[in-house]
Amino acid sequence: MTAMLTSTWYPLCSVDALEPERGVAALLPDGTQIAIFRTHDDTVFALANQDPFTGAMVLSRGIVGDKAGRPVVCSPMYKQAFDLRTGECLDDPARNVTQYPVRVVDGVLEVELS
């Protein structure tokens, strides 16, 4: 819980730079890569950009959609699905990815750094 207190919100881009139902990659100050997604209802999500099955930095390039009602992105490599809200891997629970809190303030997308 201490993390909450010391966390800061880091601005990334204008939310208009995101296309609905697609993702983009973003670079955090420490060199970490995250994948940001905007769904059809304009909700934004962020996950780690690294595909846990291959190690390649590509999750942002996956297809966005839903599986059994859960919003997901599918890895462009071998198509495993990840829940956009939690980073949970629907195909293999041992390969969940980190989920990052994001918000939109005055049209600017921000990610919480901890």
Binding site: Q33, A48, Q50, P52, F53, T54, G55, A56, M57, T86, G87, E88, A94, R95, N96, V97, T98, Q99
Partner: peptide
């Protein structure tokens, strides 16, 4: 994260390791 090494006179990819255990 993209880097290359050389093989038979040409560039080939250096692969990243798999990420460690991830928390949901």
């Amino acid at each position: 994260s993209i880097s290359f090494r050389e093989e038979r006179g040409q560039k080939v990819p250096v692969l990243l390791g798999l990420p460690g255990r991830n928390q949901p």
